[in-house]
Design a protein around this nucleic acid. Structure first.
Length: 321
DNA sequence: CGCTGTCAAGACGAA
DNA sequence: TTCGTCTTGACAGCG
């Protein structure tokens, strides 16, 4: 018996005018001569983003969706050094509290996937510094929400820099320079070009970091295409986590653009995955990464409803034998 | 009003 | 070494 929860990424294609990623660019910030007014602009955009994120959570709850990836762009310019003196935490905490309070009350799992500028295996000191600063920003948002800031930020291992083995080892060296509280926010995903499941498992097991397995990336980048032989080890990386195993699901856009995300996910592919996983663990949370966002999730649910073996709990939560 | 180019941030490969 | 591309949603600017 396995409980599946489906989630989706950041924004809805159904709820209108509800972007949680409105922004103020550095360029437009700089064009405002009154700095207080400029900060005010950033503050109001951030508040609006948090409000819209809350509206999305309410939309999710109404549809039985208990799993969600929040936008990393909630606070524009939060990690820009020119705004380092702005205490966004103090000013925005009440808004984040409401957001986190709602998620908690409804039993929702929320998390982040920081942008690709966060590269922990970089050889450049400055890039590592900025990356850690970016993770601190994510930590601060989680803390302000009252969320336990553990295993909530999905990252890739990083670049290969011409030598994959060295770059894998550099991750470990750099990891040692990061405080435990920030280390604890991180979970690691296999990518579609360089670091495959075996590489992530190597780090995950060594550093005790849960591995977020991405099925689509695995199809694009693997040593052995049969992922099931890694499954037990993947599950094992979650044994000390407060959260259930997390998986990424998406389908290739086309044969030619294999690595790009399709509008929807292939429900046959999902069904295959579901069959393999059923019975191996009590619960798995599946992040649907598709261009059509929540609409793709709803379409998958429609398809899965035809399956008589599935027992439905809520809109996007179900149980298999 | 709608289309196009630009936007904090990194990595990579082509020229 | 420099530049375009990747990828992506928002937005400013332009016609």
């Amino acid at each position: 018996m396995t409980l599946f929860r489906l989630g989706y990424v950041s924004m809805s294609v159904q709820v209108e005018n509800c972007s949680p990623s409105q922004t103020v660019t550095w360029k437009s910030f700089s064009n405002i001569s009154d700095r207080d007014a400029a900060i005010g602009k950033v503050r109001s955009v951030a508040q609006s983003n948090i409000e819209n994120c809350l509206r999305l959570l309410k939309h999710n709850n109404a549809n039985g969706i208990k799993f969600f990836r929040m936008s990393s762009r909630i606070i524009p310019l939060a990690t820009h050094e020119e705004l380092a003196d702005w205490d966004y935490k103090a000013e925005l905490t009440p808004f984040f509290q409401e957001l986190g309070g709602y998620a908690r009350k409804k039993g929702m799992r929320v998390g982040f996937h920081p942008d690709h500028f966060v590269v922990l295996n970089t050889p450049k000191k400055e890039v590592l510094k900025q990356s850690i600063y970016n993770l601190v920003y994510h930590y601060n948002m989680l803390a302000a929400m009252g969320e336990e800031p553990v295993h909530k930020c999905v990252l890739h291992i990083g670049g290969s820099y011409g030598n994959k083995e060295e770059s894998l080892e550099r991750f470990i060296e750099n990891w040692a320079k990061i405080s435990p509280r920030i280390q604890n926010t991180v979970i690691l995903e296999n990518d579609d070009k360089t670091f495959n499941v075996e590489d992530v498992l190597y780090l995950s097991e060594k550093l005790e970091v849960p591995h977020v397995f991405d099925l689509h990336h695995h199809a694009a980048n693997h040593n052995d295409s049969d992922w099931t032989k890694y499954w037990e080890r993947i599950v094992d990386t979650w044994k000390h986590s407060p959260s259930p195993v997390k998986i990424h699901i998406s389908s290739p856009k086309s044969e030619k653009q294999f690595r790009a995300h399709a509008d929807y996910v292939d429900s046959e592919m999902f069904r295959q995955f579901m069959k393999e996983v059923s019975g191996t663990i009590p619960q798995v949370d599946c992040m649907i990464e598709a261009k059509q966002k929540d609409a793709a999730l709803f379409k998958l649910v429609e398809d899965l409803k035809k399956d008589p073996d599935i027992k439905w709990h809520e809109g996007a939560v179900f149980e298999t034998q």
